[in-house]
């Protein structure tokens, strides 16, 4: 039986490899606290060189997702590196990225209105292996286009993030699908004020991994999973 387990584990590894999940070839050493949710991912590693999809509903959830993505970017972005951020309007406020550990000078913003142009820019950026990560605020994307993105990143090892607001098509080939909702922050030991940004992070889909739901806050330059809240009993919260 033990031998079978071993065989299964090995086969599982092989399948993962074939599906584009390379073992820890990336040298991200400091995940800024994201290790706490790593059990959800295949090989216990946050999949870099893949496309991550974030579902948003309004400006509030877009900003929460942007904050969460910036936190991840800060781990991906080593001393040198570049990020391409394709946005719809000039909404992302560059100075605020600094609070999430991303140097705004390393981000090249591309402000586009036309969805077709955004798709073109996103694909070109994902193909360029000199880029660390690409964030795209793309609402509508078809299965074929998401396949193209996935093929591009498998070759270039760029990590892609898609911010999708009220998407109609939910059939995509993205590796993960997230939903980030803002949560009421906890004051610092009962002190007045807002406290740290806090999110209800739902991992709705992850290929070859486990779904999950955490309460994460961004605190002093890293993610902190606060275990107080138990989502298992709670019904799915209404999103604003």
């Amino acid at each position: 039986m033990a031998a079978n387990q071993d065989t299964f584990a090995r086969l599982q590894q092989d399948i993962l490899l074939l599906q584009g999940f390379k073992p820890a070839s990336n040298n991200v050493t400091n995940w800024h606290g994201l290790e706490q949710i790593k059990t959800a991912f295949p090989n216990n590693i946050f999949p870099t060189g893949a496309i991550h999809e974030f579902f948003c509903t309004g400006q509030e959830t877009v900003s929460a997702s942007a904050g969460f993505i910036s936190g991840i970017l800060s781990s991906l972005l080593t001393q040198q590196g570049a990020i391409i951020w394709i946005s719809t309007g000039k909404m992302i406020y560059p100075p605020s990225l600094k609070a999430f550990g991303v140097n705004p000078e390393k981000v090249i913003f591309i402000h586009l209105k036309n969805e077709k142009e955004k798709l073109f820019a996103m694909e070109e950026a994902l193909k360029c292996d000199a880029v660390t990560a690409v964030v795209g605020q793309l609402n509508e994307i078809s299965l074929i286009e998401s396949r193209r993105f996935q093929l591009a990143v498998e070759h270039s090892k760029v990590t892609g993030f898609l911010l999708r607001q009220n998407p109609r098509n939910q059939m995509t080939s993205c590796v993960t699908r997230w939903q980030i909702t803002p949560m009421p922050g906890e004051g610092n030991d009962g002190l007045p004020g807002l406290g740290f940004p806090k999110w209800d992070v739902q991992l709705l889909k992850v290929r070859n991994g486990k779904q999950g739901r955490w309460e994460i806050q961004w605190q002093s330059g890293k993610f902190v999973v606060t275990p107080k809240y138990n989502f298992e009993r709670e019904l799915v919260r209404k999103i604003v």
Partner: peptide, 21 residues
């Protein structure tokens, strides 16, 4: 190891993009 902003490839990417958009 770590791509930088002054990388030739990024400049080329920007050229490709600004050709279309």
């Amino acid at each position: 190891e770590s791509p930088a902003l002054n990388d030739q490839h990024i400049a080329e990417l920007i050229d490709r993009l600004s050709g279309r958009i």
